[in-house]
Every structure is written in structure tokens, then in C-alpha cells.
Amino acid sequence: MIDHPRAEELLDAVAGWIDCVRSELNPRDAFLARVAANALSVVRRELLQGGAAEAAATQRLSELLGRDGSLPELNADLCARLREGAMDRDTPGLLAALKANIVEQIAIDQPNYAPEPGRLA
């Protein structure tokens, strides 16, 4: 059923247009057009994955900190505890929660990024 263009369709339309004009641009603008197309890809992934990632991150930080709150509140609380030394690398569960959150963030920002390898067990 055709209702109205969804956000992803609008993104696809703009990305398609950038692709069409890219070859006609001078090198600097062609580079920026590629960056712009990448920006649209980030927005597309954030639309699709962002909600679930944010909910999961909120849940993880809530468990880690032993309190409820919005993601910005929990994030600020965690930063304050780290800054004050109340939590550090050896705090149980800290690295696992941070790792799980950042894995979901990088899946939005740069899904092809090859991260630092973990030490082989």
C-alpha cells in the first residue's frame, strides 16, 4: 500500500541523487559528496538500530549503577563515578557494559571499522 514516503525512502532518494551528480563534481566536492552519502548511511542505521541500542544501553547502565534513570542521567552518573575514582577498570561488569554499548554504537557509526583485536585466550 502506498501511504507516504517513509524516512528511509527519503534518505534513499537523496543518496541516489548524490550518487548521480558525484561524477560531475570537482575533486573537493566529490569528496564531500561521499562524506554526505556516508552521513545519510549513519542516519539510516540510527533510524533502524538506534532505538533498540539506546534501550539496551540504558538497561546495562542501570544494572551497572544499581539505579534507574534516563540514558543521559545514567551516563552522567557513570562519568562522575569514573572521574571521582569510585569506579575503575577493575569494577566488576564495567568493561563488559561499556564494550556492549560501544559495539552497538560503532555498528551505527562505522559498521566496517575493524577494531583493536582482543587478546587471544
Partner: peptide, 18 residues
Amino acid sequence: MIGRRVSETEIDLVTLLE
């Protein structure tokens, strides 16, 4: 867009800490 590269340094840092 370079601002979205902060997360690459974060995943590397947390892995180095692990």
C-alpha cells in the same frame, strides 16, 4: 562526520583495557 569517529577510539580503548 568526523565526530562519529570518536566511537572508533572508544571501542579500541575499551579493548586495550580488556
